[in-house]
């Protein structure tokens, strides 16, 4: 990837963004994970947030100015070019269908597949955690088979139980907490995705490989 497609800019008086203008690509995201791991947070640098194809560094404006930090971020990017990021593999047991996945039938109809085929395709894919956001522990998973892509529900459910596995557009994901939600729910896992008293508090981390295992 050439340097021209990389853009570093000041977002506001206390943060900077590094982003790529190229289409979303695994290797770029991998470098963002590496940078996040290798920025040591201290009294000057208070947070790093990964998005899709971008990364934001939040500074303490009393101690560090964005214009001063910008070249340091560019340098980290250069170093990231050369490093490998090691992924963990996480298996998620899922009870598909019935009361656990009220929208599994709808996904099958929408994609013109049998229920078993939907489960097979969904569980035989390796997904990658591109980043975490929305809720603590909510992972944006990349890798859903385009056959299973299904629009969100027209009206969101008032409450979706914690651990629900859903499909929304071309993404699949797991709701860490009970929440209102617009995704089609196909199953549920009994794993805890977020526990504020654990270390680390979230089951998934950026860069993890995820596989769903049918557990009916």
């Amino acid at each position: 990837m050439n340097l021209k497609s990389i853009h570093c800019y000041i977002l506001n008086e206390y943060s900077i963004v590094l982003e790529s203008s190229q289409p979303v690509h695994f290797s770029f995201q991998q470098k963002l994970w590496w940078i996040t791991e290798n920025i040591s947070l201290n009294s000057n640098i208070i947070d790093v947030i990964i998005g899709m194809n971008n990364l934001t560094v939040v500074l303490n404006p009393t101690n560090e100015s964005p214009s001063n930090f910008l070249p340091k971020l560019e340098m980290l990017w250069q170093q990231a070019q050369l490093k490998e990021f090691k992924s963990r593999e996480i298996l998620i047991p899922v009870k598909y269908g019935n009361q656990y996945g009220p929208d599994l039938n709808f996904i099958a109809q929408n994609s013109k597949l049998s229920i078993d085929e939907v489960i097979n395709i969904h569980s035989n894919t390796e997904y990658l955690v591109y980043f975490l956001g929305f809720q603590p522990g909510f992972a944006y998973l990349e890798g859903l088979s385009p056959i299973l892509a299904t629009p969100r529900r027209e009206s969101p459910r008032f409450s979706v139980p914690a651990g629900s596995v859903g499909i929304g557009g071309n993404l699949t994901g797991i709701y860490p907490q009970k929440t209102p939600g617009g995704w089609n729910i196909i199953g549920q896992t009994n794993l805890t995705l977020f526990n504020p008293n654990h270390f680390p508090p979230t089951l998934l981390q950026p860069g993890d490989k995820v596989r769903f295992i049918p557990d009916n």
């Binding site: 947070d47 790093v48 939040v58 603590p136 979230t202």
Partner: peptide, 11 residues
């Protein structure tokens, strides 16, 4: 909170 936004934890 600081340092936890990369796992979805709000400020």
């Amino acid at each position: 909170r600081v340092g936890l936004r990369s796992i979805g934890i709000t400020q």
